[in-house]
Every structure is written in structure tokens, then in C-alpha cells.
Amino acid sequence: MASEQPIVAGVAGRYATALFDLALEEKALDKVRADLDRFDELVAGSADLNRLVRSPVFTADEQVKALEPILKQAGIDGISANFIKLVASNRRLFAIRGIIKAFRALVATHKGEVAASVTVAEPLSDQHLASLKSALNAVTGKDVDLQVEVDPAIIGGLVVKLGSRMVDSSLRTKLNSIKTAMKEAR
């Protein structure tokens, strides 16, 4: 149903939708998702690969030739490798990270997952992490893919971002609110 699909637009959306349909048809969603996640990490972690992906100086053939050993070394093959090379040969490699993001959104919607980002002042124990995930699952009624970030600057508490909603119960925010209230009281 179209209403259940997330909105993906532009070049990234068209490519992601085509890849999603193919991966779903071939029953390879999880493999393609894992391969694209691995490629996205490679691009994010390498200035040279990022330059290859983003720079218009390289021809499509040069990009495809440079990608082949990288994909092989990373263990990315099949649909994923062919897709990345197709994107490069069509001179759209600059959009690959957006395509990957849109693909993740399509897969998450298909699987009934919701992404949540949680910022904490110090690492959570396994018990606290499980409790938090359970609470978020109960609130959403869906399986929550939890990304935890540690930021000591929030002092204590946590900041939860779930879709378009955000709950900030950090000590830093509470202290800033008190400080503002005291200034206004003068």
C-alpha cells in the first residue's frame, strides 16, 4: 500500500525504491541492507573513497574500475555490488549515501521497525538498555532499532529522538530552564 511506504523522493528515492523492489523480489533484503551499511561505513571512514564518490572529476568508467576491488575486498557482491556499479556507471554515485538512507527507511517500514536515537551521559548497562528498548517498543507498538550515543555534556538523564518526536530529560536542559526562569524572575 502506498500510504504505508515512507516518502522517498528525487534521485535517491527512485534508485532506493528500485533496489528495494528488486531485493524484496529476490528475498535478499537483509543481505542488501548489510552490504549497503558496510559500503556506507567505508565511504564515511575513508577520505579517498568519499572523494571518489563525490567528485565529478572522475569518469563513470574510472569510478566503476576503482569500486570493483573495494567491493570485492569488503565482501560486497551480488545485487548490492551490481547496484553500486550501476549507480556509478549512470553518474549518480554522488547520491549513494542518500540512496542508502532512503533504502534503510524503506526496509524499516517494510519490517515494521522504527529508528530511535538516544543520547546518554555515560554508557548504559545491558539491563538499562533492555528496559529502554522495551519501553520504546511499548510506546510505538513496533520493533525499535536503537542507536545509543554517549555525550558527557548532557551531564545526566537522556535525550530520546523517535521519528519526529524528541524527549529531552537531560540535566543540562533542566539546569538551563532553571537558569532562564531565574533570569525572568528578576
Rank of each mutant, 00 (worst) to 15 (best):
A16D: 13
K72H: 14
P152I: 04
D30C: 13
L162R: 00
L162T: 00
F58V: 00
F83K: 09
F39G: 02
R97D: 01
L22I: 13
V150C: 04
F20N: 11
V64F: 06
T17F: 11
R104T: 06
S164R: 08
K27S: 14
V11Q: 12
E41M: 02
V32W: 08
Y15D: 15
V11D: 15
L106K: 05
N50E: 00
D77E: 10
G157N: 12
R165T: 03
R172S: 10
A138R: 12
G13H: 10
R165M: 09
L124C: 10
A130R: 06
R33I: 01
A44E: 09
L132S: 06
K31H: 02
G45T: 15
H128P: 01
T17A: 10
L36N: 08
D143N: 14
A47S: 13
R91P: 02
A138W: 04
E25V: 11
M1C: 13
G112T: 02
A66L: 14
L124R: 05
E68H: 11
D30N: 15
K161G: 05
D168Q: 09
V150T: 06
N90W: 03
G141W: 03
R97L: 04
V107K: 01
K142M: 04
R91T: 04
R91Y: 07
S3E: 11
Q127F: 08
Q5N: 14
D40G: 04
T119N: 06
R51N: 10
V148I: 15
G157T: 04
A105W: 12
V11I: 15
K101E: 01
L129E: 14
N50M: 08
E41W: 05
V114F: 04
D77T: 14
K179S: 12
K161L: 02
A115W: 05
K111C: 06
V167K: 08
V118G: 01
Q5G: 02
G157V: 09
A153I: 02
F103L: 12
A34V: 07
A18C: 07
T140F: 05
A130H: 04
K72E: 10
Q63K: 13
A153G: 04
D48I: 05
G157L: 13
D30K: 15
D37C: 11
I76K: 09
T59V: 00
N176W: 11
S3T: 05
T180G: 05
V167G: 00
R51M: 02
N82S: 12
E122P: 00
T59C: 03
A105S: 14
V160N: 01
A44F: 07
V8W: 10
A138G: 12
D145G: 10
A130M: 07
I155W: 12
E149M: 09
V144I: 10
R186H: 11
G78P: 12
A121N: 03
V118M: 03
S80W: 14
K65W: 04
